[in-house]
Amino acid sequence: MKKYFFKRLFYTIVTLLIVSVILFVLTHCTGADPAKLVLGIQATPEAVEDLREKMGLNDSLIVQYFRWLGDILHGDLGTSYMKNKTVTELLGESFMPTFNIAIYAEIISMCIGIPLGVLAAKYKGKSASVAISSVALLGMSIPGFLLALFMMMAFCVKLQWFPVAGYTPAMEGFLEHIRSMTLPAIALGFPQAALITRTTNNAMLEVMNTEYIKTAKAKGASEGAILFKHALRNALIPIITVCLQSFAVFFGGAVIIEQIFNIPGIGTLVFSSISSRDYYVIQGAVLVIALIYVVANILMDILYGIVDPRIRITGKSK
């Protein structure tokens, strides 16, 4: 078990390092000058040069990269040019809102997707299954932001059930918090729910054709037990994969939804920092998102092992 853990840790670090290099090169090669952006369009060349020196932008890329890397190892992710705050502070502030949306979106997409997928498999070929598949296709085809705008029109402006925008942290009133998170979570979660429905459906159909399902029926098991105990658990591997990947996607991809609903999360942070070429913030935020993906993958592996004993790392020896 230890060996596995260290091996995983090693690969995680290597992955993050590679990501950091690519990230660094990409952000620094956009051709724009952050110093000019900070000072604005009335800047004199002397002022800009001065700031570039201060920012260390005149050193070679390699020097700048290792300086950044060195700082990270000391826990310093750098400072934002635009906002005069440390990247760590900014990430800390924006992490929670995005994390909240991602969790709620995940819950929504799983609670809709998995049961619907199971039902679609159960009623395969019947009207119910067709209906579910149509809705799933629609869900996957609608871009999240479009859904967000529709919902805003319907539920915020016309019906006034939800606030148009803004984020209330859980601390400040749980009900308000849920109200402000509902629509963004649905906008994010619904398209993914569709994906989960289809994945669950396909996985279940595959499983339903296996021999052991026949055995289960031959034992006298009820339909419900066959579906939800015997079949679902075997279908879980692709379902887990798509659910955890969804979570990582929510985390990294919530930018537009956050913009529309004015949620001060990581997506908004990345967006604004890219517009203003705020290098350290971009790098720090993207690195965090990469980390989430990596963690999601590790979690996937662990869950696979729990769900399917054939994939366990520490198996009983044969």
């Binding site: 705008l149 805003m152 029109m153 915020c156 402006v157 606030p163 148009v164 925008a165 913009q259 529309i260 609903f261 004015n262 908004t268 604004s272």
Partner: peptide, 9 residues
């Protein structure tokens, strides 16, 4: 930041 949201709100 979103103009539509400002208007809707």
């Amino acid at each position: 930041t979103d103009a539509t949201t400002r208007l809707s709100g």
